[in-house]
């Protein structure tokens, strides 16, 4: 059976409970249209996002990872997003060095009132990922795997 479906990027989004998650909620309640490619995980603070989550997302086959929190200075826990910024900055740089396309790791500041910005960010990230292509980083490419043989 030939299965032909167009590839669409899948993004896992780690959104902070106080700002970005509420921002995403606002985008929804104000009926903003944005690509349905992001799967949202609510975290208590963007500072909770261990770089391990980013790697695990890519390992599981997500095409991109979006980490989003409050604007600098607005963190509910005062400093969580500053810490997130340090972590995400080194993660992004380091993975770029390893050979991961930088588009796959995204971080943004979205406040609870920025439904528009959230929609725009997701649209933009999705767009970029469409250009980058599917995540084959952790794929084992074998010439004669089951599906090939069955053809």
């Amino acid at each position: 059976m030939e299965q032909k479906s167009e590839w669409d990027p899948q993004i896992v989004g780690f959104l902070c409970k106080w700002c970005s998650y509420a921002g995403a909620d606002l985008a929804g309640t104000s009926r903003k249209k944005y690509p349905p490619n992001v799967r949202v995980i609510k975290v208590p603070c963007s500072g909770r996002v261990d770089p391990l989550f980013v790697l695990k997302g890519l390992r599981m086959g997500f095409d991109g990872v979006l980490v989003s929190g409050c604007h600098p200075g607005d963190c509910h826990y005062q400093t969580g997003n500053y810490r997130a910024r340090r972590k995400m900055a080194i993660t992004k740089k380091f993975l770029e060095y390893m050979g991961v396309e930088p588009e796959r790791i995204q971080a943004s500041w979205v406040s609870a009132s920025e439904g528009d910005k959230f929609a725009a960010t997701v649209a933009d990230v999705t767009d970029n990922l469409k250009k980058t292509g599917p995540n084959r980083l952790f794929e084992d490419r074998r010439e004669n795997n089951g599906t090939e043989a069955s053809k």
């Binding site: 200075g73 910024r85 500041w109």
Partner: peptide
């Protein structure tokens, strides 16, 4: 140490 500290403005170019 690195991860217990932060500056108000740093590494902004990497975050949208």
């Amino acid at each position: 140490s690195l991860m217990t500290h932060y500056e108000k403005e740093e590494a902004e170019g990497l975050i949208r």
